[in-house]
């Protein structure tokens, strides 16, 4: 379960002064549900994801992930979270097995447990053929599978995806989308940020539209369509952020 209440994050920029990247975002994601956070570049999606993954601390408001407060109990939050983003890379000089082992050890898994877990993940993700090859020599698809295995090694209850398909080819992107669906099927709590309309349409149970750091609208795809009177997701999005930007 993910729950945020008036979550706020501001940064101090030397040139631009104080920047409010996230402005009072309140949302809730339940187990077995995919919540899509839809927004343009710079809307505040990544900041929300980083706040939930406890990579950064909120300036105001509160958030709990997996029942733990993101400020008071950040380590416990991270032990329950799997975080996958376009920006989360792999160690090129390590093999896929070594990368997964490293993150398993960082999550406190014992050797026997880790061996069994890697074996299971390699079977599930069809990784046996490249498990002992260095990541720098893997194809994009293989790297993505390794990233997924790294994210899942400690079997987290909550999955945070920050634009995970950004820059990927269609086949690899489809595999990621399928993986996200599998997470829902496994009963995990999933939050998924993207700027791609078709992904939220295909994937998400609930959608939050974020713009300028503020959550402007939230609901199922059907509810958002009804609210705007538009059928096409792109039009829905434009209508909602347009309302905000209109004088």
């Amino acid at each position: 379960m993910i729950s945020t209440h008036l979550l706020t994050k501001s940064f101090q920029d030397r040139r631009r002064g104080a920047i409010l990247a996230v402005d009072g975002v309140s949302l809730e994601v339940r187990p077995g549900q995919i919540y899509g956070l839809l927004g343009a570049n710079g809307a505040g999606k990544t900041t929300v994801m980083r706040l939930l993954a406890t990579l950064i601390r909120p300036s105001g408001g509160s958030a709990t992930v997996g029942g733990h407060d993101v400020v008071r109990d950040a380590a416990a939050v991270r032990s329950k979270v799997g975080f996958l983003a376009a920006s989360t890379a792999l160690y090129g000089r390590l093999t896929a097995r070594e990368v997964i082992t490293y993150f398993g050890e960082l999550n406190g898994l014992g050797r026997a447990q880790l061996r069994a877990r890697i074996d299971q993940l390699a079977t599930d993700l069809d990784m046996h053929g490249f498990l002992d090859r260095r990541c720098e020599g893997l194809s994009t698809g293989m790297k993505q599978k390794t990233s997924i295995a790294r994210t899942l090694v400690h079997d987290p209850a909550v999955m945070i995806f920050d634009e995970p398909t950004l820059g990927l080819d269609v086949t690899t992107a489809r595999a990621i989308v399928q993986f996200v669906r599998n997470c829902r099927a496994m009963g995990k709590t999933v939050i998924y940020s993207t700027h791609m309309m078709h992904e939220v349409e295909k994937l998400c149970d609930r959608i939050g539209i974020i713009h300028g750091g503020r959550l402007l609208a939230e609901g199922t795809l059907q509810e958002l369509r009804q609210r705007t009177g538009e059928d096409d997701m792109e039009e829905v999005f434009i209508r909602i952020i347009g309302q905000r930007e209109a004088p």
């Binding site: 993954a53 990579l55 380590a75 416990a76 991270r78 032990s79 979270v81 975080f83 983003a85 920006s87 989360t88 890379a89 792999l90 160690y91 090129g92 993150f103 960082l106 999550n107 406190g108 790294r150």
Partner: peptide, 14 residues
């Protein structure tokens, strides 16, 4: 630069 810092910081290690 390689983008592995964020990956590492996601782990529960202090």
């Amino acid at each position: 630069e390689r983008g592995t810092m964020e990956t590492l910081l996601c782990s529960p290690v202090g």
